[in-house]
Amino acid sequence: MKTNFKTIVISDVHLGTKGSKAKEASRFLKQYSCENLILNGDIIDGWQLKKSGSWKRKHTRFFNRMLKMIEQENTKVFYLRGNHDDFLDQILPLQIGNLSILSDMIYESNGKKYFITHGDIFDSVTSNFRWIAYLGDIGYTFLLWLNRLVNYHRRKRGLAYFSLSQYVKGKVKSAVSYIDQYEEELAKMAKAKKCDGIICGHIHKAENRMIDGIEYLNSGDWVETMSALAEDHDGNWQLIYYNELDFSKKTEEVPTPNYQIVAPCNNQDYRTVAFNKPNDDILPPFR
């Protein structure tokens, strides 16, 4: 039996890029069932698709997995807009059956309120200096290419995976300072919205910690970290890393309690259309 969670949050899959771990993300979702699946931005990388990116069958399979969760498990899916899939601005907000496409949302669970946003709106580089963000995208893409080359030779020598981009971020003082400031500003936003916590993505750094009384949760990414956030039915959040999973192990089903979701924040009405059964058939942290 699948392990059942109340809510799973993933972000920054960057479908359409060479660095996207779409196959692993799909396999991860097969391991679990959940009442709510929140795709917290940068799921599709529109920036790369306009340039050198390409859409592969494994990218389509990710959405097939999502649609199966809706059809077979009655999962409610919330796709929140990120900066790399900002093309969604043209249709927000939209609801198609159990699929909702939003800019952000407030999630209520076990007496707590969480503000959920991709997080790019709090990034001054992304918001105010678009050309710098694009340069950062190019630089990060180069790092990922170099990272694949480095790890190819490390594997041949029997060495463990090494993240070049994480190493660079950890060594550059301005990068460390940026991440700290980013997290603190998001915590302030959650407090201003009278929420108990903030759930975000964007900077490709998975985190679960308290900041000035606010629960700060970042789901990481599916380019390198391959991580997700999961909430059990008692309201406890945990980070799950793909590389730590035992795919040969079968887990037991957990009973499903009541919950409430409030979305979107602006209380706009959705356009609703019939949902038909489907045919089965990456990125800079400083932008």
Results as ranks from 00 to 15, higher is better:
Asp45Ile: 02
Glu24Asp: 11
Asn36Ala: 03
Thr3Arg: 15
His204Tyr: 10
Ser174Asp: 13
Tyr216Gln: 08
Gln260Phe: 12
Leu88Ile: 03
Leu149Ile: 15
Val254Gly: 02
Lys249Asn: 09
Asp246Gly: 07
Lys193Asp: 00
Ser103Trp: 04
Tyr242Cys: 00
Gly19Glu: 10
Leu186Lys: 13
Asn74Arg: 09
Tyr134Arg: 08
Lys58Tyr: 05
Gln238Gly: 06
Asp212Lys: 15
Gly201Asp: 00
Trp222Phe: 14
Phe62Gln: 06
Asp221Tyr: 02
Arg148Glu: 15
Lys6Asp: 13
Asn243Ile: 04
Gln72His: 11
Arg155Thr: 11
Pro285Arg: 05
Val125Trp: 00
Glu252Arg: 12
Glu183Tyr: 06
Asn64Lys: 10
His204Cys: 10
Val77Asn: 10
Glu253Cys: 00
Tyr270Phe: 15
Phe247Thr: 08
Gln166Trp: 12
Ile203Leu: 03
Lys173Leu: 09
Ile43Glu: 08
Ile106Gln: 06
Gln48Phe: 07
Ile121Phe: 09
Val223Met: 08
Met210Ser: 12
His59Gly: 05
Asp42Cys: 03
Ser127Met: 11
Lys250Tyr: 09
Tyr161Cys: 04
Lys68Cys: 05
Gly235Met: 01
Leu15Ser: 02
Pro257Lys: 11
Met69Pro: 02
Thr60Gln: 07
Lys23Phe: 07
Pro284His: 08
Arg27Ile: 05
Arg157Ser: 14
Gly170Trp: 14
Lys173Ser: 14
Tyr140Arg: 09
Arg130Tyr: 08
Leu229Ile: 11
Leu186Trp: 13
Ile132Ala: 11
Tyr140Phe: 12
Gly201Glu: 03
Ile240Arg: 13
Glu253Leu: 12
Ile179Leu: 15
Lys112Ser: 03
Asp196Tyr: 04
Phe142Lys: 11
Thr272Lys: 14
Asn208Arg: 10
Tyr79Ser: 04
Lys169His: 10
Ile121Glu: 13
Asn64Ala: 05
Lys30Ile: 02
